[in-house]
Design a protein around this nucleic acid. Sequence first.
DNA 1: ATGCCTTATTTCATAAGA
Length: 264
Amino acid sequence: MRIATWNVNSLNVRLPRVEEWIGYAQPDVLCMQETKLADTAFPHMAFEALGYEVAHNGAGRWNGVAIASRVGLADVVSGFMGDTPPLFDGEVQESRIVSATCGDVRVASVYVPNGRALESEHYQYKLAWFKALREHLDTTCDPAKGVVVCGDFNVAPEDRDVWDPKRFMKVTHTSKPERAALEAVQEWGLVDAFRLLYPQERLFSYWDYRAGDFHQGRGMRIDLVLVSQALAKGVTWGLIDRNARKGKLPSDHAPVLIDIDVPA
DNA sequence: ATGCCTTATTTCATAAGA
């Protein structure tokens, strides 16, 4: 199974690039984030034409996550669970996770809140959201089975996952609490598939649009494919498709794809 | 030291991203 994750930064704008990419990357499952679409506006026909079923959780304007699959799409769940209590008083439920069973694998597409700044209430929300993700896994998934949680985690797991750690001292995406929150999710029973394939490499999945950051190599690795132990043994190949960040109207993120021999 | 760009919308200005 070839599974991929891509923060598309508006599927309205990016649909031609996504269609092109599906054409040559041929993912079995493509998780997308920041579709910025309402469910009613999702371009289902474009994906059906390519042989994919899609589960989408979106309210328009902000956020929005999707799973496109050509190996089946069952038991779709939008959000954490039907009756997840709000993370804080007055929370507007945001569209940041959708789950589905594709083939024999339970897949989640996640878009972790940005956090904005260490002193921001949005940072506290980010940490709370991570905790809710862990609880979601605890209550709805089995770590002994085939599980993939992929998406834009808005956390660089280690210093080597940012272009210059010195410049990430007092900002989000690299702080200890954020990394601990990500680790708590991984401790449920998930490993970073990219690091299985590339133990040392410093490769990135996001580059700011500004200041030529992409061509200067000023990036971060914040888009992750986390796989359960049962699947980790079957990870055979993968890459971050840096070419998809080039050219006309690119997303600011590149897709990450991973090939897995899924045990029967 | 900071912004640089891109997107969507309650659009010709603002919010958000990371």
